[in-house]
Computed example of a mutant assay.
Amino acid sequence: MSRFPLLRRLALPAAILAMAAAPVLAQTPMDDPLDARDARRVERMEKVVRELRDIVFKAQKTGAPVVVQPADTDARMLELSSRIADLEQTLRRINGSMETTAHELDLTKRENARLKEQLAGLTEKLAAAEQRVATLEKPPEPPPPPIEDAKPRTASEAFTEARGLMQAGDNAGAGAAFEAYLEQFPDGPRQAEARYWLGKTQTARRQHAQAASSYLASIRNWPQASWAPDAVVELARALIALKKPEDACQTLAELPKRYPKAPAAVNTRAKAAATQAKCAA
């Protein structure tokens, strides 16, 4: 018995197909071409014959069982082409969706930036409005008490009266009393100290420009008095409130030079002011 019974079965149809095709080709006149449909059929038959021949030769060489696959290459190519077309369409749809999403994200970012700017502007307006309301709600300062001129007062009495008003918490009255003292006794022995205390009342009333002028006048000649170091610090603080940190730093730099024995409390306040003004170490 032959080792390749399947080969004999496959070779026989191949031979029959070959013999069947030969008379057809021989009987067809050379000058009468086949129509397109017959030509395709012949091509398919020749393709099947070639595939069968290859299968037979492969089986003869290897002795492996022969598995005949359907020769439907065109249909598979069409199926693959259809799948590729579907994938390409899906990719185009995904790309379009990603572009749309990216565009919408860009629009959202721009809108967020615009809203942030509007919010910042509204916050500034609200702060300004709150400040105006607070100013309007602040009760007016009481008028300074009238200064009695019924009997002449000495410089010491006028100074003591002004200090008493200040200690009682009446900064407006004390300020008016110190101004009256300075006007009435321009050559008094406590002119510099009176300007220092006048600056204190002005600081309490947030009159920083007037306070700076008063402190500067009080230490113009760098008096060696107990209140003088504090006047230097108060001048620096008034300059900081007036947005003049460089001038404040220069003023604080003079404190250890002019008053090396200043009290510890004054030096502590001076360091705090230097930190606030961001003075160089």
Rank of each mutant, 00 (worst) to 15 (best):
A217M: 08
R195K: 13
R41A: 14
G188N: 11
K116V: 07
L165C: 03
S213F: 08
K109V: 13
A231K: 01
L80N: 10
W222F: 09
Q184H: 04
P146S: 13
D74W: 08
D74K: 11
T201A: 04
E183V: 10
V42R: 04
E104H: 14
L34F: 05
A168E: 15
V266K: 05
L107A: 14
V233H: 05
N267Q: 13
E193R: 10
P139K: 06
N171F: 15
Q167K: 12
E99W: 07
M30Q: 09
L115T: 07
S97M: 11
M1P: 05
E104W: 10
R220E: 10
I94P: 00
E246R: 05
P245H: 12
A217F: 11
P70F: 06
T135N: 07
L34P: 05
Q207M: 14
Q89K: 13
K278I: 03
L34I: 06
E46L: 15
N95A: 12
L105V: 04
E141P: 09
K257Y: 07
P70V: 13
S2N: 08
E51M: 11
Y196F: 15
G121Y: 06
A36I: 07
F57Y: 14
D74L: 02
P256I: 00
F4W: 07
A217Q: 12
D54G: 10
E234D: 12
K47H: 09
V42Y: 08
T28N: 15
V49P: 00
A204D: 05
Y215C: 10
P229N: 07
V66Y: 01
V266N: 05
M19P: 01
L10E: 04
A18R: 07
E148Y: 04
A270K: 09
A231S: 11
A274F: 00
A209Y: 02
R76N: 08
D72R: 08
I94L: 05
Y259F: 14
I219E: 02
H103F: 13
H208R: 03
A85T: 03
D54V: 12
L105M: 07
V68N: 05
A280L: 04
R8H: 04
L136P: 06
G63R: 14
R205Q: 15
M98S: 09
A212G: 12
A127P: 01
A194V: 14
Y196H: 15
E124T: 14
I219R: 06
Q224M: 06
I219L: 08
P152T: 05
V42G: 01
R206C: 02
L119P: 03
L6T: 11
Q131G: 06
A127S: 12
I240Q: 04
A75F: 06
A209C: 00
P13S: 03
A39M: 15
K278V: 03
L6K: 10
A265Y: 07
